[in-house]
Simulated assay, not measured.
Amino acid sequence: MSRIQTLVTIDFSYNKLSGELPSSISQLPNLVRISFNDNYLSGSIPETYRSISNLFTGISLQRNQLSGNIPATLAKLNLSFVDLSSNMYEYY
Rank of each mutant, 00 (worst) to 15 (best):
F12S: 12
S13Y: 01
Y14Q: 06
Y14A: 09
Y14K: 13
K16V: 08
K16D: 13
K16C: 12
S18L: 07
G19W: 05
E20R: 15
S23P: 06
S23Y: 11
S24C: 13
S24Q: 12
S24M: 03
I25Q: 05
I25D: 03
I25P: 02
S26M: 07
S26W: 03
Q27Y: 07
P29F: 02
P29Y: 04
V32L: 06
V32I: 11
R33H: 02
I34D: 00
F36G: 00
F36A: 06
N37C: 09
N37I: 00
Y40M: 12
L41W: 01
S42H: 11
S44G: 15
T48H: 02
T48V: 03
Y49F: 15
R50E: 10
I52N: 00
S53Y: 03
N54R: 10
N54H: 08
F56R: 07
T57S: 05
T57H: 02
T57K: 03
G58M: 03
G58Q: 00
G58C: 01
S60A: 07
L61C: 08
L61M: 08
Q62K: 11
Q62V: 01
R63L: 06
Q65R: 10
Q65A: 05
Q65S: 14
L66R: 05
S67R: 10
A72T: 14
T73V: 12
T73M: 08
L77M: 15
N78H: 09
L79Q: 11
S80E: 05
F81H: 13
F81Y: 15
